[in-house]
Simulated assay, not measured.
Amino acid sequence: MAPSSMARVSGRAGPEAPIDLVQLATNTLGNRDLEVQVLHLFQSQSSSTLDRLASETDMQVKLDLVHTLKGSARAIGAERVANVCEILEGKMKISGDAATEGLELVVNEANSYISDLLAG
C-alpha cells in the first residue's frame, strides 16, 4: 500500500471505517505486500460468496459460506462484515433461512473501501 493510498482513505479511518487498518497490520505482521494480497483475496472471496449464497439451496452449505466469510472478515479487520455474518448465522440456524441484503451491503462497503485503499 502506497502512502498516497493511505491518505485517500484517511478520512475514513478509525472506528467508523469498514476495515480496521491497525488490525490488518497486526494480522499481517506489518507486511504491506501481504496486506495487499489478503485484501485482494477478501474482495474476490466475498464477492464469490455473495454470488454462491444467492444461488445455493442447501442450508448447511449456506451456513458454511457465511461462517467462512466471517473468519475472513475478522482476519482483515472487517468487523462489521463479521458481525453481520454472526447475526446471519444465528438467524439461519433458528429459522432455516435469512435474508442476505444486510450482508451484501456491508460486504460492498468493505470492498469499496478496499478498492479506494489499493488505488493509487
Rank of each mutant, 00 (worst) to 15 (best):
Ser47Lys: 14
Ser4Asp: 08
Leu24Cys: 00
Asp97Arg: 11
Thr28Cys: 12
Val107Cys: 13
Gly77Val: 05
Arg32Val: 15
Ser46Ala: 15
Leu50Pro: 06
Thr100Phe: 12
Ile87Met: 06
Gln37Arg: 15
Pro3Gln: 10
Phe42Leu: 06
Ile87Ser: 09
Val81Phe: 13
Asn27Arg: 07
Met92Pro: 00
Arg80Glu: 14
Gly14Glu: 05
Leu53Pro: 01
Arg74Cys: 04
Gly90Lys: 10
Glu86Val: 01
Ala2Ile: 06
Ala73Lys: 02
Thr100Tyr: 10
Lys91Cys: 01
Leu41Ala: 15
Gly102Gln: 10
Ser115Trp: 01
Ala98Cys: 14
Lys93Met: 07
Thr26Glu: 12
Asp97Gly: 11
Glu79Gly: 10
Glu79Asp: 13
Ser48Phe: 08
Glu104Phe: 00
Ala82Arg: 08
Asn111Pro: 10
Val81Asn: 09
Val107Gln: 07
His40Ser: 14
Met6His: 06
Ser46Val: 10
Phe42Ala: 03
Val38Pro: 06
Ala54Pro: 01
Ile114Cys: 07
Gly14Val: 05
Met6Cys: 09
Leu105Pro: 00
Ile94Pro: 00
Glu89Phe: 03
Tyr113Trp: 07
Glu16Tyr: 06
Lys70Gln: 06
Ala7Trp: 08
Gly90Thr: 05
Val81Pro: 06
Val9Leu: 11
Pro3Phe: 06
Ala73His: 02
Val107Gly: 09
Ile19Cys: 07
Gly96Val: 11
Thr49His: 06
Lys62Asn: 03
Glu86Asp: 13
Glu101Met: 07
Asn27Ile: 02
Ser115Gly: 09
Glu101Pro: 01
Arg52Thr: 15
Asp58Ile: 04
Arg74Trp: 01
Leu65Arg: 11
Ala54Asn: 11
Gly30Trp: 08
Lys70Glu: 00
Leu39Ala: 08
Leu21Cys: 02
Glu16His: 14
Leu34Trp: 02
Ala54Met: 11
Val84Lys: 07
Asn108Pro: 00
Val107His: 10
Arg74Tyr: 00
Ile19Met: 08
Ser112Asn: 14
Ser55Leu: 13
Ala98Met: 10
Val22Lys: 14
Lys62Ala: 02
Gly14Leu: 09
Ala73Glu: 02
Asn83Ala: 15
Gly120His: 11
Leu105Glu: 10
Thr68His: 04
Val61Ala: 15
Gln45Cys: 01
Ser5Glu: 12
Ala75Cys: 05
Thr57Asp: 09
Val38Gln: 06
Asn83Gln: 14
Ser47Asp: 12
Gly14Thr: 03
Leu50Gly: 04
Gly30Gln: 08
Met1Asp: 04
Glu56Lys: 05
Pro15Trp: 01
Gly120Ala: 12
Glu89His: 07
Arg8Met: 12
Leu53Met: 02
Ser95His: 12
Val106Ile: 10
Leu103Asn: 00
Ala119Asp: 12
Lys91Val: 03
Gly120Phe: 09
Asn83Tyr: 04
Arg52Gln: 15
Glu109Cys: 05
Gln37Asp: 14
Ala25Val: 04
Asn108His: 11
Val36Asp: 05
Gly90Ile: 08
Leu50Thr: 03
Met1Tyr: 08
Val38Thr: 13
Val9Asp: 07
Ser5Val: 02
Met59Phe: 03
Ser5Arg: 07
Ile87Pro: 00
Ala13Pro: 00
Asn111His: 05
Glu79Cys: 05
Glu101Gly: 05
Ser46Tyr: 04
Ser55Gly: 05
Ala73Asp: 04
Leu117Cys: 10
Asp33Cys: 04
Gly120Ser: 08
Glu86Met: 09
Leu29Pro: 00
Ala98Ser: 11
Ile87Trp: 02
Ile19Val: 15
